[in-house]
Design a protein around this nucleic acid. Structure first.
Lengths: 212, 212
DNA sequence: GTGTTAAGTTAGTGTTTGCTAGGTTAGCAG
DNA sequence: CTGCTAACCTAGCAAACACTAACTTAACAC
């Protein structure tokens, strides 16, 4: 029997990881119902029964993937961001923050699409990511704003609503990129960030100075 | 033969409209692959063959729905918005604009979800809505900003990028509402709009005055 | 009434789906 | 070399899927 080329026999953990990796791509591309177990197996380089050795059902695999993407992103601190924070350089801080958000959307468009699919599909874990990741992010940004308001640098706006506003200015463009696989924003990303950061900082600044 | 209650026999146009209506709800709720033709027929109050008298395939129905939502929304002008525009009242203009965007997202969460599904699913008509509706909206807003910049009311920011920024501040919250069926923003909608409009206008204002 | 049209139904078609029983083979321990 | 564990396959199940052929019946014109 012509042995099937040189496909190595992996350990359970390795094979499981390979399956998860392939499934993220497929589910992100076509959604849960749009992806068949046959496609999943083929993409992972195995046959269907192997899938079911690692995951009891197709939905279990889906859930495991969503869970894994929620955990992977835990360590989301950034040196440059912290440096800007401690230097009290607001422009540097928000510019870096916008860069991080947009770069994350571009680099992890699979995850973005996956989370959108899971949200639209009412998956039970859909909110998990947003509670674990987005809430933490909002807390951080709200805290920064509150601190700077107390320090007298910013006007007395509601820091949480301002955080949502700033995030929307940036993340909305990231979403559009991820959904439509639109690369046109890449070219103007720097200018976009410059513009929205300038608008935001001017918008909340207490000082009457214009920041270019 | 016990005749099936009092279900009226509709004309072709009426039945077709009823099918489209039911299909919008179902596709918006569960996506294209997540919805079966049996469910569609049942929701429209008919049997499957009736669907196929009006639409050759399931995908044809899907496409017809997306197309119809693109055309319905054509007349998107607003009296209050135009009044604010001609009065030169920027705060009133952007406040009304934000209201319109958020209210639209809330009232048409079906359409929002449908368009997100179609975008994620790479439907050929996915961009149609954005070219027909969103591009027109951006043109309008960009034009307004350009005009006010020329009049000396706003700083010399890029009007298109500013339009995207402002829209992101508002629409991002609307998307979150539609995807997660989150009604928590309704209570703070007025305050949110007030905050982001104040930030935006202060951010692009040429005058050194602080607006509230 | 009677004939015609078209809205509606019943009862399937072949195919694809998620999933599995049972057998095969690689890799390591002794 | 031998035996055992577990990674992996072949082959196929029952159910659900998109879709349809063939029939029935309501509604209107004359």
């Amino acid at each position: 029997m012509a042995r099937p080329a040189a496909r190595p026999r992996l350990t359970a953990a390795e094979r499981r990881a390979a399956i998860v990796q392939a499934a993220i791509r497929l589910f992100a591309e076509k959604g849960f119902e749009g992806t068949t177990t046959r496609e999943l197996a083929a993409a992972a380089g195995v046959t269907e029964p192997v899938l079911y050795q690692h995951f009891a059902t197709k939905r279990d695999l889906y859930t495991a993937i969503i869970e894994s993407t929620c955990e992977v992103e835990q360590k989301s601190s950034d040196a440059e961001l912290e440096a800007a924070r401690h230097a009290g350089d607001d422009r540097r801080f928000f510019t870096r923050l916008a860069e991080l958000v947009l770069d994350w959307h571009r680099r992890n468009s699979d995850v973005v699409r996956l989370l959108l699919f899971s949200g639209l599909g009412h998956h039970e874990l859909a909110d998990l990511f947003f509670q674990r990741q987005v809430a933490v992010y909002y807390d951080m940004l709200t805290g920064y704003l509150r601190e700077r308001i107390r320090a007298g640098a910013f006007r007395r706006i509601d820091p949480y609503l301002a955080a949502r506003g700033f995030t929307g200015m940036v993340a909305h463009q990231g979403l559009a990129m991820a959904i439509f696989e639109d690369r046109s924003l890449e070219k103007v990303q720097r200018k976009l960030i410059q513009t929205v950061v300038a608008i935001f900082l001017n918008g909340i600044a207490k000082e009457r100075s214009q920041s270019r």
